[in-house]
Amino acid sequence: MSQFLLVLVSGVAGGAVYGLIGLGLVIIYRATDVVNFAMASLATLGLYVAVSLRDRGVATVLGVLAAITITVVAGLLVRETVIRPLGQGQLFSALVLTMGVSLVAESAAGSIWGDQPKAFPSLVEGTVRWSGAALPAQSLLTIAVAAAAMALVGYLFGRTTLGSAMRAVAESADTARVVGLGAQRLARIAWALGLGLAALGACLYAPRAGLVPTMLSAPLFRAFAGIFLGGLTSMYGAVIGGLTVGVLDNLAANYVSASLRDTFVFSFTVLVLLVRPQGMFGTRTFQRV
């Protein structure tokens, strides 16, 4: 029982990271119709800066704040200089450009800091005993911080004027413009929020994975599996899908085969999409052809 509890908590912690990254992807996609593949690589740059600051004696928490800030600023610069000039409706072009930015960011990280793995400090050390299991304190902190961040995002979109305006832009930028909402300003806020969530998830994930230029590639694709599982346009779906992927991934690795963990997760996702193409919480759309 204690082993199962340990596996479950570790899976929920991993799923919380996938949920944060997936939530950031969905927020940006709904606001600007851009699937931001560069998000993870930009967050990795922020992590390298955080490690560099720690090596110079800066507190880890301040390094995490610096990583989030750098990720947000770099992402907004990418949007203003690379994505926004494309104009509306260029989904495929924007997708390809963000993939290119991702490759450039990974190459830059490797050139500046090298390709050798670096340790990223845990925010907390030690374990917590519960039901006979020694649960890593870092995993419990990951779950708590991710839950708090997701709750704040839910409050923002459900209870505030800014959240209502962002939902209006997500439904129709033209409608938002008619009622006097600044679509570009709200899009920037959505990008900043999405990038910040991804950077927070990266900071929570890095202590268990180590730091290399491509460290977030696997979490990014698992986050994509989560948002397709939950529904591409659903923020709740991104969270629940990410948690589902994290738990299934860890259960498969421990009780089936570590080499088949991704096969198990993505096979499950495909089966769900065959039954419900819009995902668990997505909305089916109809187009006249």
Rank of each mutant, 00 (worst) to 15 (best):
N250D: 13
S267E: 08
S267H: 08
L251S: 07
S259L: 04
V275S: 10
L243R: 10
V275Q: 09
A253R: 01
T244S: 15
A258N: 06
R276A: 02
L251E: 08
G241W: 08
V272W: 03
R261E: 09
G246N: 06
G241E: 10
P277G: 00
N254A: 13
A258L: 12
L273Q: 09
S257T: 05
S259E: 14
L243N: 06
V270D: 10
L273H: 07
D249H: 12
G241M: 08
S259G: 11
V272E: 04
V272A: 05
A258T: 13
S257A: 14
N250F: 05
A258R: 12
Y255I: 01
V265C: 03
G242E: 06
L274V: 14
V275G: 11
F268E: 04
R276C: 04
F281Q: 06
L251A: 13
G279C: 03
T244P: 06
S267G: 15
G282D: 01
L271Y: 10
A258C: 03
S267R: 09
S257V: 01
M280F: 14
V265L: 02
L243I: 13
G242T: 12
F264Y: 09
V256A: 10
V270W: 09
S267K: 07
D262V: 11
G242K: 05
L243Y: 03
S267P: 04
M280K: 05
T244Y: 02
V256G: 00
N250M: 11
N250Q: 15
R261A: 11
A258S: 13
G242V: 11
Q278L: 01
L251G: 11
G279K: 00
G241Y: 05
T263I: 14
T269W: 06
L271P: 12
M280D: 03
F268Y: 11
G242L: 11
G242M: 09
L260K: 06
V270Y: 12
V247P: 08
V245P: 08
V270G: 02
I240Y: 12
P277F: 00
Q278V: 03
A258I: 11
L274Y: 13
A253V: 03
S259D: 14
L248P: 07
D249Y: 13
V275F: 11
A253C: 08
P277I: 00
Q278R: 05
T244I: 13
V256S: 02
D262W: 06
I240P: 04
L274W: 12
I240T: 15
G246D: 05
L273D: 05
T263V: 15
A253K: 02
F264P: 01
L251C: 10
V247E: 09
G246W: 08
Y255G: 01
G282F: 06
T244A: 14
S267W: 12
L248V: 15
L271C: 13
F268A: 15
S257P: 02
V275P: 07
